[in-house]
Design a protein around this nucleic acid. Structure first.
Lengths: 225, 225
DNA sequence: CTGTATCCGTGTTGATACTG
DNA sequence: CAGTATCAACACGGATACAG
């Protein structure tokens, strides 16, 4: 007889919080954003979550039509979790939330990130105006997971995909890439291997400017007339 | 010695959830979005919150530089809570969250909203392309709170402000306005009083189109090569 | 009147162990 | 691999009492 705790509020934001405001809900969605995953793969990208909580969140997210559970065809008889179209449209939430939060006065860098987080952060933070006439492909290998960034016509597409064949391939620890993109580190100083065009890899690292930190104060007077 | 539960995750979204992911944190920010409020005013806009939880959230939000606590000058010796600049910049979170959530297959309308929620929903949902060359002011009176919408040059500004002097003034129950704007109800059928230009009030109500509901399914194949 | 502190019943969360 | 069961710790909501 567990009536789920809910804001009794007509506000759409309150409804959003009712369905994705529970602990771990959004990180789970994040891990599925670049393609379906199995239960165990989800746990790997969510250090600290326990199996029972993951089970419960998956049920709730399925009930909210954010994801669906599918059984793979016979050869691999396992289950996978996959975002619905509407669930995938929530990526804008992650982008806006990420852009706002990275300016937090209390955010401290250096904590580990999952491969999917790193790729999504690139999708969020890349400055398209800096792409210019770059026309190239960059591959990423983080553990078992592979991704690819395609830059062309001043735009970029970053997605899951085979790294082989890219003009440059970055392999190793995804956290090291964060240190390079946002922390000013050089590839030589971190746990990343660069194969192929090294100049391209260096240029790529300049496409991710960090916005300035927010001052923790309130400006003159918002006025309530 | 209570170390606050936190995702140990470098992802900026995880940091965002660490500071605004707790229950009631975002609704509190919402209530402050249109100007500072006192403790008791906050409770009024947040039915269901208990005093101790509100106190705790206010402390945490202050520690995160989202709001500041100020003591008003002598005459009214009470405290107010006010968003910082960065806190106010979080409105984009509410807008994106609201636009995404109002398409939820499981959202049911009709639940009560606070005056601030209603005003913020207008800021979020108004379709600027429908404003045309309207040049007018509309006032709102919900209980003690007054707001004003100024339409000019194809744009709109909606804020706290005295309703008197507007071309049309809508007074009464804020939930009734929701029914008119998004539910197709007419002013005559709800608990709202229209003073002034009634045709304007009717036209105003057509500026808030609802996006279509999301189907609860997943499209063909996102491909994970 | 405006908050703050404390207690208590309950539900949620999280760690470990275990089963199909 | 994919979860379920159990149990301890914590967070929440409500009530009450208290301080400026």
């Amino acid at each position: 007889m567990s009536q789920k705790r809910a804001y009794q509020d007509g506000c759409a934001v309150a409804h959003a919080l009712d369905i994705i405001g529970d602990r771990w809900a959004m990180p789970i969605m994040r891990e599925l954003m670049l393609g379906p995953k199995r239960f165990t793969d989800l746990r790997a990208g969510l250090p600290g979550i326990s199996a029972n909580v993951l089970t419960q969140r998956l049920e709730e997210l399925e009930a909210s039509s954010i994801l669906v559970r599918r059984r793979l065809p016979p050869p691999a008889a396992s289950q996978i979790y996959e975002l619905t179209d509407w669930g995938r449209e929530s990526e804008i939430l992650f982008q806006v939330l990420g852009r706002w939060a990275c300016r937090s006065p209390t955010m401290e860098p250096g904590k580990p990130m999952s491969p999917v987080s790193v790729i999504l952060s690139m999708r969020t933070m890349i400055d398209r105006s800096r792409i210019g006439d770059l026309n190239t492909t960059i591959g990423f290998r983080f553990g078992e997971e592979e991704f690819r960034a395609t830059l062309a016509k001043g735009d970029v597409l970053i997605d899951r995909g085979v790294a082989a064949g890219a003009d440059t391939i970055l392999s190793g620890d995804q956290n090291s890439l964060i240190a390079v993109l946002y922390g000013g580190a050089r590839y030589a100083d971190v746990l990343l291997t660069v194969e192929g065009d090294e100049a391209l890899a260096d240029h790529f690292a300049t496409l991710f400017p960090l916005p300035p930190k927010a001052p923790d104060m309130v400006s003159p007077a918002p006025t309530a007339s």
